[in-house]
Nucleic acid binder design. Structure first.
Lengths: 359, 359
DNA sequence: CTGTTAGCGCATTCAA
DNA sequence: TTGAATGCGCTAACAG
């Protein structure tokens, strides 16, 4: 069955294609009677305008690209849903791309998205400077940075108050009496990761406690590498690709390193939810009880956190709204409004049971 | 900066656009020297072919649509990742759509995807018969059903052995000595839900235990409705839209109903991961310990299940592979290979600690 | 071995 | 109040 085109409709309604186009887009007046005929023809033929032909003609595709690291990470899942809901509200839709924090994949996707003439881009960049991204910005493609900044690109940013998050988490632990607080953090290229650690340091500084660099360890957020072996066919996770980045040890390994310190920390601040899983597994394996033996606070909440053993105390971030806000900002950019100021959404300490008071 | 087109390249290289097109697509022989000139021109101008123009000309967009119920559901998250990985491998990309099990949203998305000339469709249908879907199939758009069937559409299906899953779960509970086994199940329109219950019934039948319909309760899988109030700005979940479907009580409510039965079940089989959360919250609120007071087995595993309190015994399904397999099948369909037979992937019982032996 | 040209399905300018 | 004609960027006959 060949696709029915605007010509078929025009013919059937006995008008020109121009008129059909105009009744569809309401872009100039059409006599009621004529319009009626066109509308009927459209329905009878079940006509659906071709969005790509329209795109060619108008240079606008109603499509935006969403580049994130991994949809499988609950943080990005919620963000993506927020994005999709907001864009859909405006009649736009989303092409989604997982980089796994790999700059090469990022580059490849940027190429693809550009080829497909996206009207705008939402990106949580890997943090490695990208010529292609710069070029897209120069080509006046509206871009909104999602959650993270990246060197060499000055675009509106929607983020969460990561510094405050690190600060709140640390301060809470300090109030509980902890003095040796370990940090399990992720890749250095990711801006949120460094900022969260800055919040941690500020809290220590205010409390007059020197920062001990031994207590800050860095892991690859793909926590499961080498630790939770994919159960072949039954794995729910994508196979792990060993890029350069992934030479960094996993959260599981690195936490063990922290626990082997002569003077072991009494509490740990984990800077994202994926590493929290690795950390929890490491504790479990060593037979360490949380919070009896060690306290743990994590960045980013999710639906399951309260069902964990123990229920997790976390810094919660408005993930869904982060996506929604960024998408809204992009829509405004696309509609030609001036570039909005960067937006920072608040975070919140959610106290459950994974941290305890010490004397 | 205006987009550079094939004309610009042709001009710069001193050849015709046809030649440029042919070196790009390697679709006819071009003298080395000429090709070289074209390649250089492309690089100098940083030319990127327009995929939508090409789409118009060739009637193929390298784009496929993915319709699922909610990317926020970990099951679909993993499926989506599998789909994306596989499609990307073939140079295709994905437009993703969340229906929230709402047939109207499904219809709207189908319209959108058709307008955008997708080359193929991957859909976990809501289960309500859809004219538009039928029409798309008639228009020879390749379609692969993901995880579920739908009335009035005969398309290749990639699914999981849901019947066996229900059977294994029930059989395991029977082996532990349970005789009154409750079922917390989801919407009737969703084919997997009914099949899982059939597996349950078969196991009972084999054990000579009559099916007690009182023990089978139905909930809306959007478990959180009325139960876990969205924490305003800090919610990680999309706002709940009250469609007709959602007049069904939540898992939380329905489980309570089950627990109020004169002769309370000693074990519960929950037929998907979302309802499991509702169920766990309900148990927690009533102060019932699992598995001491009641055993629970759930359909679908995820990374967190082993960290729950208690670690969840589940029927695990190969979610990532489900998506990957379906996408692979769609690719074959698009490439013109004959419609493959329906594929059923195996499920697996993963025993952890949420079920106990009773006398 | 390469160029010319006619569409693909639509929006839009210019006429009428 | 409406139509005819042109072009968006590309591919694919057809021609040479």
């Amino acid at each position: 069955m060949a696709r029915v085109s605007i010509k078929d409709v025009a013919q059937r309604a006995g008008v020109s294609t121009a008129t059909v186009s105009h009744v569809i887009n309401q872009t100039r007046f059409v006599r009621d009677q004529t319009r009626q005929r066109v509308v009927e023809a459209i329905e009878e033929l079940n006509y659906q305008p071709s969005a790509i032909a329209r795109g060619l003609a108008t240079n606008a595709t109603q499509t935006i690209g969403l580049i994130i690291s991994d949809i499988t990470n609950p943080f990005f899942t919620a963000v993506a849903r927020g994005v999709e809901d907001e864009l859909n509200r405006h009649g736009y839709h989303t092409i989604f791309c997982n980089t796994d924090e790999d700059p090469n994949r990022e580059d490849e996707y940027l190429r693809l998205l550009f080829a497909h003439q996206i009207d705008g881009l939402l990106i949580a960049p890997t943090g490695v400077q990208s010529d292609r991204l710069t070029r897209m910005a120069e080509a006046d493609i509206p871009i909104v940075l999602l959650d993270r900044t990246t060197p060499g690109l000055d675009a509106p940013l929607v983020q969460v108050d990561n510094e405050a998050g690190g600060y709140y988490a640390t301060k809470y632990l300090l109030e509980l009496g902890h003095r040796r607080i370990g940090v399990l953090r992720g890749l250095e290229t990711i801006s949120t990761q460094v900022v969260r650690v800055e919040g941690y340091k500020r809290a220590l500084r205010e409390a007059g406690i020197p920062v001990d660099d031994q207590l800050i360890v860095r892991a690859d957020p793909q926590y499961h590498v080498n630790q939770v072996p994919p159960r072949a066919l039954h794995s729910n996770r994508p196979p792990v690709k060993l890029t350069n980045l992934q030479m960094t040890p996993s959260a599981f390994e690195v936490l063990n390193q922290l626990l082997d310190l002569p003077e072991r920390p009494t509490a740990i601040f984990v800077t994202n939810n994926q590493m929290t899983l690795g950390a929890l597994h490491a504790l479990k394996e060593r037979g360490l009880k949380c919070p009896q033996d060690i306290s743990l606070i994590s960045f980013d909440d999710h639906d399951w956190a309260s069902l964990f053993s123990p229920p997790l105390t976390v810094i919660s971030q408005p993930t869904y709204h982060l996506g929604k806000t960024a998408a809204g900002m992009l829509m405004r950019l696309i509609k030609g409004e001036p570039a909005p100021a960067p937006t920072t959404l608040p975070v919140e300490l959610v106290i459950r049971e994974s941290c305890r008071k010490i004397s």
